[in-house]
């Protein structure tokens, strides 16, 4: 997402190499965890397999806690960490489109590429669809620009906008995540389906 340092200018190839290595590790982890099966993502929607929720929420919490600790110890300067800008309308509309795409396709962009790498035909179609969507978006951007950029709120953080300290917000989110995992486990028992991955 960003150069390695905002102070020293590293050569472009080093930035690219770092991105490549991290991306490879991420793809490897996704594939090893079984995310290249579209049943994982669909299971989240039907409630019989909530691995996606648990894995990605845990990853977010670990990153949140880790970055706060590194910031406190002075190793990471959180002031220089890029924060994505928040556009209200495009977040809502984009979120609905993405969600619909996830459940229909059975992949998210990352797991789609991961499944593509092991030769899944549905993943190839899914990734092609992603590219077609990106192309359409770019070509029609002048028509939807007003909508896409409406409701600009800047790169706000949730704790800033509700006036909580970062530490307290982290605690509340972690407790909420733990509560959600409990609910997810109950859902998994209630909507359990026979494991058929090995038969497929």
């Amino acid at each position: 997402m960003a150069p390695l340092s905002s102070y020293f200018i590293f050569p472009e190839w080093l930035n690219m190499l770092t991105a490549f290595l991290i991306g490879t590790a991420f793809g490897f982890a996704l594939e090893q965890a079984g995310f290249s099966s579209s049943r994982k993502l669909a299971g989240m929607f039907y409630g019989y397999d909530t691995t996606v929720l648990k894995v990605f929420f845990t990853a977010a919490i670990v990153a949140l806690i880790g970055s706060q600790f590194l910031g406190y110890l002075g190793i990471l300067n959180l002031n220089q960490v890029y924060v994505n800008e928040f556009y209200v309308a495009s977040s809502i509309i984009g979120g609905v489109i993405m969600g619909a795409g996830f459940i229909m396709g059975g992949f998210c962009p990352g797991t789609g590429l991961s499944a593509l790498s092991i030769g899944k035909i549905d993943a190839m179609v899914f990734v092609a669809g992603g590219f077609a969507g990106a192309f359409l978006f770019t070509e029609t951007y002048p028509l939807i620009e007003k909508l896409a950029t409406s409701g600009y709120r800047g790169p706000v953080k949730i704790n800033e906008s509700i006036g909580l300290s970062p530490g307290l917000f982290t605690l509340l989110l972690t407790v909420a995540a733990a509560g959600m995992f409990l609910v997810a486990e109950i859902a998994e028992r209630k909507f359990a389906r026979p494991e058929i991955t090995s038969e497929l």
């Binding site: 924060v83 790169p155 300290s165 530490g167 982290t170 605690l171 989110l173």
Partner: peptide, 14 residues
């Protein structure tokens, strides 16, 4: 995260 909540972290500016 409980430890974090007790640490005097300052909110970072965006």
């Amino acid at each position: 995260s409980l430890i974090l909540a007790l640490l005097p972290l300052t909110s970072n500016r965006s």
